[in-house]
């Protein structure tokens, strides 16, 4: 009779102790969707050179997915010591709802804890058959748009806000017109994936949509890694400066050495080698001096709004107004039929 319960107890115990070797500190970095390749290389570089003060090596595990969804798994209890998400609000929510991150986490690292930035661009099919050059082309009837789900993805929220910012300038702050413009873009959306990488796959592999709204880094990744010449990158006239932040989760750094290793890990992102790897994977580094000039030359200087621009009012205003349940996005979005 007891057999099954013993088995269950054993399984629970196994999960509790994790089974890490004692001369190794393990960290889990819960990240957003397009950073897969970045952290693969960055983790290898960090773990190769780093030892904790008492001489232990570090092993880093990754989990990737839409930023909002990942924040939820941290709140739901995933054992992450480090979060590297797509936008500030997702870490704020973890801090607020779980208490595992201090409220002043942004002050712990330079540049508001964002070691790299990016912006939002368009990907179109070879030859740009629908002549998509700017946000207004996305609102045209008959254009099929792919962008992820703002409820689960961080990139998707940057995409939405970039469109909003463009419309705000076009219509001089007339909110009814801005709403209608953004709504007409989302009427054209064929599919909302849960993360940026999923949206890329939908656009590239499954052939859905005329245009993909995505991260600049994800667009360059697609151009270089996938089928050469099948897609083109379009910079809109106005975009948004996306600042993906990073933070240690002290509430989950219970084991010896985890807190120190997690802090050193994130600081390494700001080190010359970290910044070089960041630029290599198409993220805009804070300090371009160590990066390969060829990597830096890619980034086009375009006009970018900031989330702190009055049109958005920072994440504290933008998140509830646009993305929380019953917010503007919920009012606007009706899936295309």
């Amino acid at each position: 009779m007891r057999g099954g319960f013993i088995v269950l107890a054993a399984a629970l115990a196994l999960g509790a102790c994790g089974g890490a070797a004692s001369n190794e500190v393990t960290l889990l970095n819960v990240s957003y969707d397009p950073t897969r390749e970045l952290y693969e290389e960055f983790n290898a570089a960090f773990t190769a050179s780093y030892k904790t003060p008492d001489g232990k090596t570090v092993k880093i595990s990754m989990s990737h997915g839409g930023s909002g969804k990942q924040a939820r798994t941290v709140i739901d209890g995933i054992d992450a010591q480090v979060v590297t998400l797509a936008l500030q609000n997702d870490i704020d929510v973890i801090a607020r709802e779980s208490g595992k991150i201090p409220a002043d986490w942004r002050t712990k690292l330079p540049d508001n804890s964002s070691p790299y930035t990016s912006t939002i661009v368009f990907m179109v099919r070879k030859g740009n058959p629908k002549a998509i050059l700017d946000w207004s082309d996305l609102a045209r009837p008959g254009v099929s748009v792919v962008t992820p789900n703002p409820k689960t993805s961080g990139g998707a929220r940057w995409n939405y806000l970039a469109a909003w910012g463009y419309a705000a300038r076009q219509f001089g702050g007339d909110e009814a017109k801005i709403r209608e413009f953004v709504a007409s873009i989302y009427r054209n959306v064929a599919k909302l994936d849960s993360g940026a990488r999923g949206a890329t796959t939908t656009f590239t592999n499954q052939g859905t949509g005329d245009v993909l709204i995505t991260w600049e880094n994800e667009a360059y990744y697609t151009l270089t890694e996938l089928e050469q010449g099948a897609f083109e990158l379009i910079y809109p006239s106005l975009s948004i400066k996306a600042e993906p932040p990073v933070a240690v989760v002290p509430g989950n750094a219970r084991k010896d050495g985890q807190l120190q290793a997690a802090e050193d890990y994130l600081r390494y992102l700001y080190a010359p080698e970290g910044q070089r790897i960041v630029a290599k994977h198409f993220y805009r580094p804070i300090d371009p001096s160590a990066a390969d000039p060829a990597d830096i030359a890619r980034f086009r200087e375009i006009e970018m709004l900031s989330i702190d621009d009055p049109v958005f009012g920072g994440w504290d205003q933008a998140q509830p107004k646009h993305f929380d349940a019953g917010g503007l996005f919920d009012q606007i979005y009706q899936p295309a039929r």
Binding site: G68, K69, K151, T152, K191, S194, T202, T208, P335, A336
Partner: peptide
């Protein structure tokens, strides 16, 4: 399937989507 709403989105997938939205 390409999992488009109203076209090829099955109910179990929609459960996963709602879960990820924390709904």
């Amino acid at each position: 399937a390409n999992n488009l709403p109203f076209q090829s989105e099955i109910a179990p997938l929609l459960i996963v989507i709602k879960l990820e939205e924390h709904n």
